[in-house]
Amino acid sequence: MFHRIFQVLDRLFHFEVARAHCDIPCGIYDPHQAQVAALTVIRMVDLMTDLVKGAQKDNAEFHNSMSRYIAVKEEHAELCKREVRVIFGDFIKKEHVEKYPELPTLVHKIMQAGSKARQSASREAALDLLAQVNRFAEIFWEIKGIPTKRVKAPYKPEEEIVYPVL
C-alpha cells in the first residue's frame, strides 16, 4: 500500500533517482571497468619493469612479487576483454553498428590487444589496449548522447582516459 502511495507522489513530485548500478539485468552499462582494467595492465607492466631494474633478482621476494604482478595483469587484460564483450553483445544494436561501422573492427582489435597484453610484458601493447578501449568508450558515450572528455587518470600510471561529462 505504501509503495502505491509513493508511486502517486512520484508522479506528482518526480522524486530524484538513486542509482543501483550493475551490468547484468538492468540495462545499465559502463565502459569504465574496461578502462580501469586497461590502466591496471599498464601499471603492472611498469611494476614488473621496475622490479627487474632492482638489485634483488634471485630470491623468493622477487619471484613472489613478479608472480603477483603477472597474475593481476592476466586477470585485468581478461576482465577488459570481458567488459567490452558484454557491452558489444548486450548493449550495441544493429543501428549503432550502422552509425559507427568501425565498431566490429574496433572490438576485434581490443580482443587482440587484450591477448597481446597477456602474452607480453610490452608497455606499447598495454598502451594500445587502453587506446582502443578509450575509443570504444568515446563511441559508447556518443551513442548515449553524452559528451566526453579526455583527462589524465589521477593515479598511476597517469595515462589518458575518456570520461563522460555528466
Binding site: 509513493f6 512520484d10 522524486f15 533517482v17 538513486a18 543501483a20 550493475c22 539485468p25 538492468c26
Partner: peptide, 22 residues
C-alpha cells in the same frame, strides 16, 4: 528525502522501482 531506486545491484534488499527515505 524520498528517492526512487533505479537498477538491480542491491537486490534482494532494494529492487528497481522501490522507494527509499534518506
Amino acid at each position: 528525502k524520498v528517492l526512487r531506486v533505479q537498477g538491480s545491484s542491491l537486490t534482494p534488499d532494494f529492487a528497481d522501482g522501490d522507494y527509499v527515505v534518506v
